[in-house]
Design a protein around this nucleic acid. Structure first.
Lengths: 238, 238
DNA sequence: GAGGGCTCGTGACCGTGATCACAAGCAAAA
DNA sequence: TTTTGCTTGTGATCACGGTCACGAGCCCTC
């Protein structure tokens, strides 16, 4: 089965092939079937907006393939990226549960696929399946912790270098949790990194230069190699 | 009935005398009774810590009387206040639901009273009463929105004056939603205000001077009068 | 009334990171 | 090939806000 944008359609990406700790995994058979009935699947090109900040919540999106970035902007055009979402993540849950406008914009960073569950159907489903409602509460709680971490980073970290080091470390632990010298593909532009740590593109460029010179990291094409994790951790220290 | 700290003990502050939209209001009779069985009430002096950032979650606190401030600190001692809680608020819910350490410190800003519900009892209660679990999800979602707003403030607002204006407006709309010239008691020190908007005490002092000079606000004793709400809104513009 | 412990106001200084500007690198399109 | 557009590197400038310092005001206790 071939979809647009050169992407294979995944047959049923609610079956949790990737990880098992996700929201709609390991449900009772009945609940799982019901969920399958109310979901619909679609494929998105790079740059597609799943939803936009301020829109009324239509429903949630369960990301099956591809990455998405969640961002929010001020009127003057300044943008911050609050989260990079990956396969398995549930997007728009907060807006749907509380019936408030989407608080972020979700944009596909590469071609991908997502299941859509309309708001009304989901709420009805949650009422029928109280055990899933508690799981939703747990998920919302996790979202909250992520947001809280963001607050700590933005509010407590003083210098851009501190935030940059923190970001690098979070990437390195994700790619290789144990390894001292982690390496991973760098898919973001300096501009995007700047929007994550709340600074300007130029500062990010300078940070790369500085960290290279200090032997903290190395760039091989688009692969970033952490050369001195310990020193990065010392920069963070919060 | 007289309690320590010159405070009258409220007989049952779960009965939602103040507002009705709170978490544990308008429950079924059965659920309400059950909740009464598992809660316990205590009185706290000014400065008392309900819980401290990093502690394992013992349970939630439902604030009945008095105000509390929620804050988080970095190792180097920098502190940010993330929320001012009032009567009716439920504190520690995220930590309890997700079984992670308390993410904030909750300190009483004035003498007060709170109901405590132990973690295990609450979770058991939520399992037995699925309809309340959904309400909890809604509450967590609200918490998330509050956190998100904080992120927007910290990440998007550029200058301290912008954040200060935003804070003043949030206070004025709370005290008198419609009025053009709102006024309210200012109970915080400059230091605390600085911790809310993420700047220094000196800057807050200077902001007060500046805003007074620009006729944006006025101080009558500890009462703050908004003199030009429109101008404040123009400063914010995000 | 004197003392101590807070808040608060304000001046002087200075470092950092935002801003502007421009050139170079690189990839896809024409 | 040239063109176009996006990304990256780096220098020069400069305003803003953090830091330090000090004194004044205020409240409570002794």
């Amino acid at each position: 089965m071939r979809a647009p944008y050169g992407l294979n359609i995944l047959d049923n990406c609610l079956t949790c092939a990737v990880r098992e700790e996700h929201l709609f995994c390991n449900l009772s058979i009945h609940a799982g079937q019901r969920l399958n009935e109310i979901k619909s699947t679609a494929v998105y090109p790079k740059g597609a907006m799943l939803f936009i900040e301020g829109q009324q919540p239509r429903g949630v999106f369960v990301l099956c393939a591809g990455k998405a970035k969640l961002s929010t902007s001020s009127r003057e055009g300044k943008t911050i990226i609050t989260k990079l979402s990956e396969s398995g993540d549930v997007l728009g849950l907060n807006a749907v549960v509380s019936n408030r406008p989407y608080e972020v914009t979700a944009e596909m960073m590469e071609p991908g696929q997502a299941n859509f569950i309309p708001r009304e159907s989901l709420l009805q489903f949650l009422k029928e399946h109280g055990e899933v409602a508690l799981r939703v509460a747990e998920q919302l709680s996790r979202n909250y912790y992520t947001a809280y971490d963001e607050i700590r980073t933005l509010g407590l970290a003083t210098s851009p270098s501190e935030k940059f080091a923190k970001l690098l470390l979070s990437w390195s632990t994700k790619s290789s949790p144990t390894d001292e010298a982690a390496q991973f593909k760098l898919t973001l532009t300096h501009e995007e990194i700047a929007e994550i740590i709340g600074t300007t593109r130029e500062t990010v460029s300078r940070l790369f230069s500085e960290f290279k010179k200090k032997q903290l990291l190395q760039l091989k094409g688009s692969t970033l190699v952490i050369r001195n994790r310990h020193a990065l951790e010392k920069i963070v220290q919060s």
